[in-house]
């Protein structure tokens, strides 16, 4: 009887305005409408005065999205490995940098950029596999030692890469068909003679964003729609139970680790083409993926996507509107997340 009374909707709530859920939905709708207006309308002067210019604002948003795409590629592997193995792989940034250098070498050697990307993914996947078999399997269940060993690996790897490739800044050259800028159908300003100025944006960055979305959707489908994904999810929830039900967890671990490392390598090549490759990038991307995963929630692909989006946008908007304190913004977001929702936005409560 008690159950029945709880499930019956209260008749009063229909008359008294909206429920909380409806309120949030309406709020989001209004925000979306404002955003759409900001993208397509011609800006009044007061808005230009506040946000520098429509071009600056939209570029910051677009750059934030591309950066988020890059961060997502790096952080998705990181979060998968952590979710499954409870192992914070602090050498993940080194995998990114190594992937970038290898991609550069292959692209230079073969002359095909796509081969560089493929090499970055495949070779780093193998490196990840080797790391899992040689290092992590030996230290299984010993979180602290695993973490310390990965720090050690990252320091040694950084120095080895510095010794081999030197301190020079490398730029992986994208092929002709990917470079150059395209005009987006968004009017940023109208000249006095009535011609419209369209937003110009580098084509390659749009490609980066689209590929990150495709890879993200692919990963989500892999984890949520396939048999191996079911194993991974089961492993995230209860490793011992998965092993007891006859699955060879070591194989699952190895596959996930290889995938995570490969994604980091891929991101290295893609990111090294959009920005550049230089010593120090490893720490930068490790830090970025740590923040992304903390904000998004450990072990969740959707969380990594949301975290990457927030951090990418915050970084770019900060860079344009308050460059001196832009760096702080990222960490403020992290601290606030930790204070309000310590498990991260999409993190489960375990």
């Amino acid at each position: 009887m008690a159950d029945a009374s709880r499930s019956t909707p209260k008749p009063l709530s229909q008359g008294q305005g909206m429920t909380r859920r409806q309120g949030v939905g309406l709020g989001l709708l209004v925000l979306a409408a404002i955003f759409v207006w900001m993208v397509f309308a011609q800006w009044p002067d007061w808005l230009n005065a506040i946000l520098i210019s429509k071009k600056a604002f939209l570029s910051a948003i677009l750059n934030g999205l591309t950066l988020a795409g890059l961060y997502f590629l790096v952080a998705s592997g990181f979060t998968l490995v952590f979710g499954l193995m409870r192992n914070v792989n602090l050498a993940h940034g080194s995998l990114y940098l190594l992937g970038a250098y290898i991609g550069y070498e292959f692209a230079e050697w073969t002359g095909y950029w796509l081969l560089g990307v493929a090499a970055g993914f495949l070779i780093l996947a193998v490196v990840g596999l080797v790391m899992q078999v040689l290092v992590f399997r030996r230290l299984e269940g010993d979180d602290l030692r695993q973490t310390l060993v990965t720090i050690g690996i990252s320091v040694v790897a950084a120095d080895l890469m510095l010794a081999y490739w030197g301190g020079t800044t490398y730029q992986i050259l994208t092929p002709e068909w990917l470079s150059g800028a395209v005009q987006l159908p968004i009017v940023t300003a109208v000249r006095s003679n009535g011609t419209e100025v369209l937003l110009v944006y580098p084509f390659y960055r749009i490609v980066v964003l689209v590929s990150a979305i495709v890879i993200g959707v692919g990963l989500w489908a892999l984890v949520n729609r396939t048999r191996i994904g079911a194993m991974i999810r089961a492993g995230v929830d209860d490793r011992d139970m998965l092993a007891a039900s006859g699955v060879n967890v070591h194989v699952v671990f190895a596959v996930v680790f290889a995938l995570g490392a490969g994604l980091a390598g891929l991101a290295g090549v893609v990111g090294g083409s959009a920005l550049s490759v230089a010593p120090g990038e490893d720490v930068r991307y490790l830090l970025a993926s740590l923040v992304v995963v903390i904000v998004g929630g450990m072990g969740s692909i959707v969380g990594a996507a949301i975290g990457a989006l927030i951090i990418g946008l915050a970084e770019q908007i900060g860079l344009v509107y308050f460059p001196t304190y832009g760096v702080v913004l990222t960490f403020v977001i992290m601290v606030v997340t930790l204070a309000i929702r310590p498990q991260g936005i999409m993190g489960g409560t375990r």
Partner: peptide
């Protein structure tokens, strides 16, 4: 900031 990588937003501004 020194060590900044992504200048496209700065360029746009």
């Amino acid at each position: 900031p020194i060590g900044n990588k992504d200048y496209s937003s700065v360029i746009a501004a």
